[in-house]
Design a protein around this nucleic acid. Sequence first.
DNA 1: ATGACTGTACCGGCTGGACGGTTTACCTAG
DNA 2: CTAGGTAAACCGTCCAGCCGGTACAGTCAT
Lengths: 176, 176
Amino acid sequence: MSARTDGASTRDRILDAFEMLLVEGGSRIATLDAVAARAEVSKGGLLYHFPSKDAMVDAMLDRLREQGRADVDKMKDASQGPVRYYLETSVDTGSAFDRGLIAASRVAQDDTRARETLAELRNGWFAVLAEHYGDDALARTVQLIGDGLYFDDTTGLAHKRSLDHVRDVLARLDAL
Amino acid sequence: MSARTDGASTRDRILDAFEMLLVEGGSRIATLDAVAARAEVSKGGLLYHFPSKDAMVDAMLDRLREQGRADVDKMKDASQGPVRYYLETSVDTGSAFDRGLIAASRVAQDDTRARETLAELRNGWFAVLAEHYGDDALARTVQLIGDGLYFDDTTGLAHKRSLDHVRDVLARLDAL
DNA sequence: ATGACTGTACCGGCTGGACGGTTTACCTAG
DNA sequence: CTAGGTAAACCGTCCAGCCGGTACAGTCAT
């Protein structure tokens, strides 16, 4: 709550490092030693802030949920409208939020809390989409397209024309 | 290629056990010991068939690619047409192929070969979709929806009405 | 104002357990 | 005899978590 080194608190630097490693190589390489090294903290220092790896995951997920709430707000009053905003941010924009999202999905493979967090975020977006359209079928379909975009992106096989294709199809439905 | 115990060969039983463990708990719990136990084979017996874990992954991926080729064929001459077939099989039907697909995506997190295999399978489906529609935008969008369905399913948060919603929207586009 | 003490933030060596993989000795049906 | 195993000891490596220390800022009685 007081000591700073560069700009961010050590605590946040550790969480950032954890997310980066998760994004780059999955949970296998995101060991405590690797996280500590990346955050330029000793392992002991890391353990001072987060008593266990589990606690670190919890903290990362808490931060992500908070960022998620902010994202839903931005989506609601985005100038392009919620749909375009949602679709455009479904592909990795390099933001801290995206990084956290990808990190969480890496962990989700064997962590229930991460799955729950992801589900909670998805529910938030769906609510905005459903309210905007007043049509659950359309809202769900757009959300699925967003999930597909996101999946392709994180699995490393996104086609750069995908977003254009989707916009084209949604235009035919007057759903943009 | 000859010895049977129950119905399947020991080799296939091992691969099945490996996939099951991958689906249930990700690569962390799919250890050689756990696979051997699930397949009711000794660890030595497992290593007799697959000299290393890497070799086991390769074999699993090979089997999956073969099943994938068969699936593309089934998709081409499915009575419901390729789109319905593709969509319906994007949600887990409990088939061996689905299980293999989920298993591969679990491994894909830190395995290039698995990512390549998944990409190859996706290309096969896209080709059928694109040929059917003669419209890349629509084909890509349907594929993204399929990816979304699949993603939701494997992340454990599928809504059972999703498929109906998608069918509804595609009907509005005369794309079913 | 100073010396004793306290809490915060952090360091880094170490341990114990799990895991992948190897090897060896043994069994058994065809 | 040999293909197809079983059973279990063993090795090297990796990793989470533990622990004994350090540095230093602040507090407080004297």
